[in-house]
């Protein structure tokens, strides 16, 4: 049976790992390649790099980081942040990434998703959706530019649209939950998971073991992503996986990672 996946996320700026709370404050914390290799050894199923460099220098540093990652990390990895064209996708895939994720650029120009899927295959194209709940209602709007700009797009409708365009996976971040450690927004997760037939990665809000179980059981997510929780070792990948296995969820045991 296909396992549910546990995915640590690394926020990267100018080739260094940073971690923000609610997308604003940043705190430097190390070499992304070494950290990703450590996550591989600790039993993570994939790693996501989110690049928040704005400068051109930062972008070329990113490609070098992707190349080094491909040499040292033997689980799939996704690179997102600032990808605006098929040429950007090509450069990152050529450097060795398994998947790329697009967010703002896909909202601006949805054909980027279909062009990317046609050229590199759907399995390569992850669409990241940052969603915020409309207060008091059970619907969510899509935000762009790192969560700073609201759009009129309904998150569930947008998810269905990108699936039609050829997205292989949806990385669904709850802007309300991000950084709070109050748990994933499983109403959002299940609304999207029920609307599409591609995997949904729950993101934003993980703070304790039960949150991962709830994302899979209540949120119907295929994978759960966390950044600061793993980064600051509040929980280890092994603790999360041991807990989920004990809860009877299909999980690749952390021991199948390990020193290579």
């Amino acid at each position: 049976m296909l396992a549910k996946r546990i995915i640590p996320c690394l926020d990267v700026k100018d080739g260094r790992v940073v971690k923000g709370t609610n997308f604003v404050e940043l705190r430097d914390a190390g070499d992304p390649v070494e950290l990703a290799a450590e996550y591989d050894r600790s039993g993570a199923d994939e790693v996501v790099f989110l690049d928040i460099s704005a400068s051109r220098e930062g972008r070329s540093t990113l490609l070098e980081m992707v190349r080094r990652t491909a040499e040292k990390v033997f689980i799939p990895f996704t690179v997102g942040g600032g990808i605006g064209s098929v040429e950007d996708i090509r450069a990152i895939v050529k450097a060795g990434a398994d998947k790329i994720s697009v967010n703002t650029a896909a909202v601006k120009r949805p054909q980027l998703v279909s062009e990317g899927a046609e050229r590199f295959g759907s399995q390569c194209i992850v669409v990241a959706i940052d969603a915020r709940r409309v207060q008091g209602e059970n619907r969510w709007l899509v935000y762009t530019h790192g969560g700073s700009q609201a759009t009129e797009l309904d998150a569930v409708q947008w998810a269905k649209q990108v699936e039609t365009l050829g997205a292989g996976e949806i990385l669904l971040t709850s802007m309300d939950g991000d950084g709070t450690k109050d748990g994933y927004d499983n109403a959002l997760n299940s609304a999207v998971a029920e609307a599409v037939n591609i995997p949904v990665i729950a993101s934003g809000g993980a703070g304790k073991l039960e949150h991962f179980r709830d994302a899979f059981l209540d949120g119907q997510a295929d994978a759960a992503l966390a950044a600061s929780l793993f980064h600051f070792k509040e929980l280890t990948v092994k603790q999360v996986k041991d807990y989920l296995l004990a809860e009877g969820i299909a999980i690749r045991p952390a021991e199948q990672g390990g020193r290579i």
């Binding site: 296909l2 759907s122 399995q123």
Partner: peptide, 10 residues
């Protein structure tokens, strides 16, 4: 079945 099968399986 969800196609492609993408992920970890035994």
């Amino acid at each position: 079945l969800k196609v492609p099968q993408m992920g970890w399986n035994q």
